[in-house]
Design a protein around this nucleic acid. Structure first.
Lengths: 210, 210
DNA sequence: GACAGAGTCAACACTGTGTCGAGAACCCGG
DNA sequence: CCGGGTTCTCGACACAGTGTTGACTCTGTC
């Protein structure tokens, strides 16, 4: 059955759609989103420019699809993590932040294009902000319960703290990925970020030790 | 001498240049940079589109000039501040951060357009990164000396910490100005940011008390 | 073997950017 | 007051990129 006839005379729609995504992610690895035209994507996928519009309504539609996959990967990997904030707070925070660092690093082009795209496109902004919101909510809950059990001091609203720290992560990671200056060394990013999270949540250098 | 003759028959070049800047800042108050065309700027300044190019080489040139003025204002106001980090660390940090919050808030449109523009334009990026670098260097020096005099604990590189906190400020302030979600309330921003700075620099909730 | 639908693309319309070259207004020394 | 350089102005053009339209070609199905 495999390969009925000689070959599928025409490449299927799904393959084409995928070819566009693959081309886009590849091109995003070598240049910025703005320097990629729809023509480039179409050519890379072996179709003409108008045909591109059969699969995506715009260049941003492609970015949206790519971003969606990256976010799903983060959600999945964070979901796999143990929730041992009360037994090992420092380790638990570090592991969560580590997922972001790793996933965004392995999809550098998509991550930077998507975050830059937030200022330009409504839908990209919506999708990204939805995720940021869910991560911030998760952090808020953990911080609130750490404050409730007396492990973390009050003096700051848990939600404000959670949002600010998540925004910091976003910005610091983008700076690293873009090789901006100033930025910090990629190899130290995780360490630096978790230190700041822990110090500002627990108000002390070594939390957890009773 | 005032108003020699009847009036300058033609408006001077400097006035035109200024009219463009004024128009740009006004329009940035009501819509995003991408939604403003060179035509809009020219019309606002009472000139034709080609004439615009006599004064600025592109739309980004205008943004660059506006950003430059904002940065100068921050530098000036930070320079006026007392440098009393050893007698009142919390207050000193809060006052510095407060300058950023105030100046960027009062030039909301320029600030958000410029920061978004970094991902698009080389020169805007250069200018912004130069300033970020100088603020990060300043913070690094203060943190280093706080660590040296034993007021702040080690365990984190002063420069890494300084850069990350400055990037956090940038991102949190932009989120507030853009009314993003998640973001924090503008009225609490200064408080939240300084709390995070102080906790992560001093590793404790109340620094300075010997 | 014709019909439906999925897929394809040449050609077009439009928007915005940037350039060119001809000219108008202005300034100053002679 | 005149001539010549400088500053300033804009109509007309060239161009790149986006998005649309309408006709055409497959491919599987009844």
């Amino acid at each position: 059955m495999a390969q009925r006839g000689r070959r599928s005379a025409r490449i299927s729609g799904d393959e084409r759609q995928d070819a566009i995504l693959v081309t886009a992610e590849a091109l995003l690895g070598e240049r910025g989103f703005d320097d990629i035209s729809i023509e480039d994507l179409a050519r890379g996928a072996g179709i003409s420019r108008p045909t591109f519009y059969f699969y995506f309504s715009s260049k941003d539609g492609v970015l949206l699809a790519l971003l969606d996959r990256v976010i799903t990967e983060v959600e999945y990997r964070v979901g796999q993590l143990p929730r041992d904030f009360d037994s090992d707070p420092a380790g638990a925070w570090t592991r969560s932040i580590g997922v972001f660092v790793e996933v965004f690093t392995s999809h550098r082009g998509v991550a930077t294009a998507a975050i830059a795209g937030c200022s330009r496109n409504e839908e990209v902004r919506k999708l990204w902000s939805k995720s940021m919101q869910s991560w911030a909510d998760f952090s808020t809950n953990v911080i609130t319960s750490e404050q409730a059990r007396g492990a973390a001091p009050g003096g700051i609203d848990a939600h404000d703290l959670a949002v600010s720290l998540n925004l910091m992560n976003e910005r610091v990671i983008t700076a690293v990925l873009n090789q901006e200056s100033p930025a910090i060394a990629g190899s130290r990013a995780l360490d630096v970020l978790s230190t700041i999270w822990i110090r500002s949540i627990y108000g002390s250098v070594h939390p957890g030790s009773p």
